[in-house]
Design a binder for these strands. Sequence first.
DNA 1: TAGTGGTCTAGACCACCAC
DNA 2: TGGTGGTCTAGACCACTAG
Lengths: 254, 254
Amino acid sequence: MGTTQLETVPEPKYWHLKTVIGEALDSDFAVGEILPNERDLAARFGVARATLRQALEQLELEGRLQRRRGVGTTVAPPRMGVDVSTSTHYWPGAPRDAWQPVDCTNAVPPAAVARMMDTESDETVHAVRRMLATHGQPVAAELLYVPAGSVPELSAIDAPSGATRARGVLRELQRLTLEGQDRAVELGSARADDAKELDRLPGAPVLVVTTRYFSEGRTAVVSVATYRADTCRLTFGDSGDLEIRHHGQERRAS
Amino acid sequence: MGTTQLETVPEPKYWHLKTVIGEALDSDFAVGEILPNERDLAARFGVARATLRQALEQLELEGRLQRRRGVGTTVAPPRMGVDVSTSTHYWPGAPRDAWQPVDCTNAVPPAAVARMMDTESDETVHAVRRMLATHGQPVAAELLYVPAGSVPELSAIDAPSGATRARGVLRELQRLTLEGQDRAVELGSARADDAKELDRLPGAPVLVVTTRYFSEGRTAVVSVATYRADTCRLTFGDSGDLEIRHHGQERRAS
DNA sequence: TAGTGGTCTAGACCACCAC
DNA sequence: TGGTGGTCTAGACCACTAG
């Protein structure tokens, strides 16, 4: 058709805003610096606050901003790398494990988890809760589902719940021979309980890492770990001998 | 509910809505079924359309719904597992590779990528574009950055760009010895070009998998692959002998 | 108490798709 | 052309944090 469509495909405002603000972050702001509040920013860019928020949400999703109710919006530090390499063939709770046991209860696992184990769908299992934190910041919350059959000697322990029992379950686990594991990563939104422990609002985006641990030809443990997607980058080191660990990058301008 | 909950925890409406609709999806809807339109749903639940949309966005983020402009909202099938296991020690473009070369240009890599390679920050490299699709659905878009030094024999090729040149670069790569790789997964939002190829809107949530391939003691290739977060689950099989594939069936070998 | 981000409303118009 | 989801507005009130 002859007509020329010179004047442009209309890029959404929030998308353009995101680009503009993102560039400003690179050039004019330092990590930790506080941005003007949303009402001011919206006025400055001549858009409604909802539109401005749509741009900020994107930037927060990408880990460039951090927003806290009652406080303000700050420039986020680069995401921290969290090693989840599958090549470390250890049970949860092995000596070098940085996870912190929090609690242990009996529960029937969600259907999706029960399907991954060799249990009846209504069988109760040990549910061990653990947290991972670095530099004082909560990073991930984990729920380990351990069928009673995986820790047969545990019944002698009297702690009915709590961190003590959690440690007991993990200790018993070490007696088994780990034959392999199998892992999946997907996007999810934080459940209310996880969100609270991760210091985020319910529904916050998280990376859900589901791991199956195999022993004696069956699934001995299923782990569901939720990592804060805004602050974390999951790293899978390979071939063991390569070390790249984090940030040697400079920052800053102006 | 005789007792009054004086100490009400005001759960946000959109959060409650998400739960209600999510349960309805489980019980009353089949995969592929079309939901009522947003205006009707909002009216039915007695909320503003924006609030209803907030709930739908969450469900879409979790891969439970699929929304298409001009068409409607449908119930999404379970996420497909995409194997990205690092234990397959092959170069991109190796014989079994399901990725489809699309294009190849010369470009200067983004600063973050240049930092991972042993190149000057303004050095141009081969930028190979590839797509991954399963069942006719686009799943991921990849950009491979290949320094000229990694494919020294390539200059003889006359195709200056396009899929032919892309295949040429990948073919040359196979001559090198792959010494290791190193991988990171994080949440991102689709750039305009990726979004288009993935049949999504710009800003759609994606899982960004960054891989470094090492050869001869240096970084030979950097790959940045963006997977649709709504439809994909990244799987990392371990020790090569374990296969998962959906719904509880497990197989062993070795 | 003042100021922040989080939620919610009731509209409007636009881009896209199928018929 | 009619119906869908996507964008945008200009308000309002709430929950939280800090001084």
